[in-house]
Simulated scan of single mutants.
Amino acid sequence: MTESEGSPAVFARRFWLFARRVLRNFFRNHGILLAGGVGYNVLLSAVPLLAVLGVLLTRVVEEEQLLEVMAIQAQHFAPAHADLWLDAVRAFMESRNIIGIAAFPVLLFFSSFAFRMLEDSIAIIFHRPENPTRSFWFSAALPYLFILVLGIGLLVLTLLFAFVDTLYEEPGPILYLLSFFSVFIMFSAIYKVLPILHVSPRRAVVGGLVAAILWEAVRLVMMYYFLNISFVNVIYGSLATIIVLLVSLEVGSVILLLGAQVIAELERSDRAGLPWYLSPD
C-alpha cells in the first residue's frame, strides 16, 4: 500500500530532506562563523546607533518615552543585559552637548558596521556564480538607508507606545506585541532588501515571521537560563556580561542567517523549476 501524496509521512520525509539540505549548505557557507562576525558587529554598532537615533529623535518625542521604547526593543536582542546598552546610551545623551556635532559622523560610521557585515554574510548565503553584482555606491549607502528606516520605525513605535499608554492602565501585553511586530518587520526587510537576488515579498514576510517567532522562543529560554541556571559568572567572572551579550547576539544571528539560507534554497528550487523539497544540485 503506497502513501498518498499529501499524507503526513510524505510531508515529513520531504521536510526532512529540505532541512538536511538547508543545514548542509548553511555549514558549507560557514554560517556559524558568519553569525559570530554579525553578532560582534551588532555589539559594536548598537550603542552608537541608539545614541545617534536617541539624540535626533528627542527633538520630536520625550526622552524618557524614547528610552523606554529602546529598553523594550533591547530586551529582544540582549535578554539578560539590555540595561547595559541603555546605560551607555543614557550616558551619551547626557553628555551630548560636550561631545558636540563633530562626533556624529564617527558614530554613524560605527553604526553601519553591523549592516555591512550582515550584507556580506547574506551575500555569501545567496551566492551563485550567475548572481548579478551590486554597485559599490548602492552597497555603501544601504547601511545608512537602514539606519534611516530604523529611526523612522523607532519614532513610530514611540508614538504608538505613548498612545497605547494613555488608553490602557496595563499596556504591557500590547507594548510587547508591538515590539515583536517591529522585530518581525525588521527581519522581513532584511530578507527582502539585503540579498542581491530578487526575493518575493511573500517569501520575505514568511521568513521574517518564522525567524521572529523562533528568536522569541529562544530568547525566552536564554533569559531563563542566564538568570537562573547559568554558570557564566563563575567561569568568566567580570567578563560574564560581555560573554552573555555576545552569545545572545550570535544566537540571534544564527537564526537570522539560517532563515536566509531557507529562503535561498527555496529560491534555488524555484529557479530550477523544481518542488521546494528537491535540490537542484
Rank of each mutant, 00 (worst) to 15 (best):
R28Q: 11
G31L: 12
Q75T: 04
E267T: 10
S45L: 10
M186Y: 10
L53H: 00
D281F: 03
A103I: 10
A204L: 07
F180E: 03
D83H: 13
Y277P: 02
A140I: 07
A91H: 02
R96N: 08
I185F: 06
G259W: 09
P132G: 13
A103Y: 10
Q65L: 04
L278W: 07
S238A: 11
F187P: 10
L220N: 14
S111R: 11
R128V: 07
I235L: 08
W215S: 08
L175G: 09
E119G: 12
Q75E: 13
L157D: 05
V61I: 11
G153I: 05
F161P: 01
W16D: 12
L209H: 00
A91C: 04
N29K: 14
V218K: 09
L56W: 05
I213V: 15
L209R: 04
I147T: 07
V254G: 04
H30P: 04
I190L: 15
M117Y: 12
Q261G: 02
A212C: 03
L178E: 13
E63M: 06
L167T: 13
F115C: 02
P79E: 11
G153E: 10
S182F: 05
I255G: 01
D165Y: 00
A140L: 14
A211P: 12
V55E: 03
V149Y: 02
E267P: 07
D281Q: 09
I263C: 05
L17V: 03
P195E: 02
M222L: 15
F231N: 14
M117E: 13
V193D: 03
F187M: 14
R21H: 15
T58M: 10
I263H: 08
N25V: 04
E169H: 13
D83Y: 01
G6A: 02
A204C: 06
H81Q: 12
V22D: 06
W85T: 13
L57E: 04
V199Y: 00
V47D: 06
S139M: 05
